[in-house]
Amino acid sequence: MAKKPVTVTLNGTERAGFAEPGQNLLDFLRRGLGDLSPKYGCGQGTCGACTVTIDGQTHLSCLVLAEAADGRAVGTAAGLADGARLDPLQDAFMENFAAQCGYCTPGMLVSARALLDRNPRPTRAEIVEAISGNLCRCTGYEPIIAAIEAVAEERTRP
């Protein structure tokens, strides 16, 4: 089977590569396009470490065929910072000690950013729901929830 050309708009920039037959989007992003921010945790849709957005919706990139993303906009944690200026969520993760080993962090950030983009003032229950597909072994989740809450509260201030 032949490789297929795949073009995506990755974090706002058009990027093209060749996808192997059956290659998933996670592998295509990491090995094909060199974006190492989405992580491989399980390869079967149960850990959330590979979470990305496709046209603004969160997806587990290990379960998406690379060619299915052809022509679409893909967002990863690497696209959150604007140069040296971090996304407020990234700052809040640092201030709240919300990353220990950091392996879950890119997926958490993508899930949390997608939540805040569609719902700028989520309740705690909505935050919990939004990250319930992202496993974290280290933090006990509480500081991650606190970091997301901190950004949500910041937004509600005048």
């Binding site: 945790g41 399980c42 079967q44 149960t46 850990c47 229950a125 935050i127 919990v128 729901e129 990250i131 319930s132 496993l135 006990g140 989740y141 509480e142 991650i144 929830i145």
Partner: peptide
């Protein structure tokens, strides 16, 4: 054998 069956408390079980 995988995270589907290996139980851990999630963010809603704190």
């Amino acid at each position: 054998v995988d995270f589907n069956h290996y139980l851990m408390p999630g963010p809603g079980d704190l």
